[in-house]
């Protein structure tokens, strides 16, 4: 990397998967290195030649040391262009950046993972850790919500996770089609199906802020304290490493101090309008 923290590295798209109508996965490996290490919840700044950079969560590609996935929803300028790229195309990568999920702190405890939309991407790493080290944790509930069932990606992953011992996977859609087998409603509606031990549960949330705020209210109501609730946040990010100032929320740089935060660190301002 020749010591310049600003400089991207070249990465090659080795595979492209269309996950749903507006979401695709690019499998990447960084040119000239045989190991790309990251922790669950971290992200990269992904550069599209001549257009710009966007922050994207890193999804593990099985046990590979140098290959990883970015699963991307096409919403605007950069994501549109990234969606056009085919295997063999080159992009730029800076990262991995940010703080990861508190897997070590959660060992021996029950887990409650709550995600909405593409908020499941940063938590794939946690579930894959679970696949390998299932006995490190107690009961696991994985709740995920989408708007329409056609939006649900990673069916096979969810199926695999549902077969793990002592693990419950609950899926829901706001407006499901007739052949949807999950629940109907928001991911927070699924909380009525839970029976958790509040003191022994670590909750990890990622999705739209309104969803996380609703989930936090329910969790507090159930007796889960803020120090056991973790959230992953999104803000405008230009640099990803605590320099450009855009991602600030109160005194925190979301890119560097987060994106994963313990709720008790940010409860004074998270969810307050305009902070």
């Amino acid at each position: 990397m020749n010591g310049d923290i600003n400089l991207p590295r070249e990465a090659v798209i080795t595979e492209r998967i269309q996950d749903s109508q507006d979401t695709f996965t690019m499998r990447l490996s960084v040119s000239g290195v045989d190991r790309f290490s990251f922790l669950p919840g971290q992200f990269n700044m992904l550069y599209l030649y001549g257009v710009g950079e966007v922050p994207i969560s890193i999804v593990p590609d099985g046990d590979s040391h140098n290959s990883f996935d970015h699963t991307i929803r096409v919403v605007g300028r950069v994501t549109n262009g990234l969606g056009e790229l085919q295997p063999g195309a080159r992009v730029g990568i800076r990262g991995p950046f940010g703080r990861s999920w508190p897997i070590d702190m959660a060992k021996g405890r029950d887990l409650l993972l709550v995600t909405g939309g593409l908020g499941n991407a940063p938590l794939v790493g946690v579930m894959e850790h679970l696949v390998k080290q299932r006995d490190e944790f107690g009961h696991v509930d994985l709740l995920h919500g989408v708007k329409q069932d056609a939006e649900l990606i990673w069916h096979d992953r969810y199926q695999k996770w549902a077969t793990l011992p002592n693990t419950r996977v609950l899926l829901t859609a706001d407006n499901p089609s007739p052949d949807w087998s999950g629940s109907q409603g928001t991911v927070v509606d699924l909380f009525s199906q839970l029976s958790i031990t509040p003191q022994n549960t670590t909750a990890m949330l990622c999705g739209p802020e309104v969803m996380m705020l609703a989930a936090i209210e329910r969790l507090r109501g159930m007796g889960v304290v803020d120090s056991n609730i973790w959230v992953s946040l999104e803000r405008n990010m230009q640099c990803g490493m605590g320099k450009c100032g855009h991602c600030q929320m109160g005194p925190k740089f979301v890119c560097k101090d987060g994106p994963v935060f313990c709720l008790s660190e940010i409860s004074g301002y998270f969810g307050k309008k305009g902070i």
Binding site: E10, Y47, G50, G88, R90, V91, G92
Partner: peptide, 12 residues
């Protein structure tokens, strides 16, 4: 970043 005819990217 320089892009050559085969799409390789060289960042400097």
């Amino acid at each position: 970043v320089q892009r050559d005819s085969s799409g390789n990217l060289a960042f400097s």
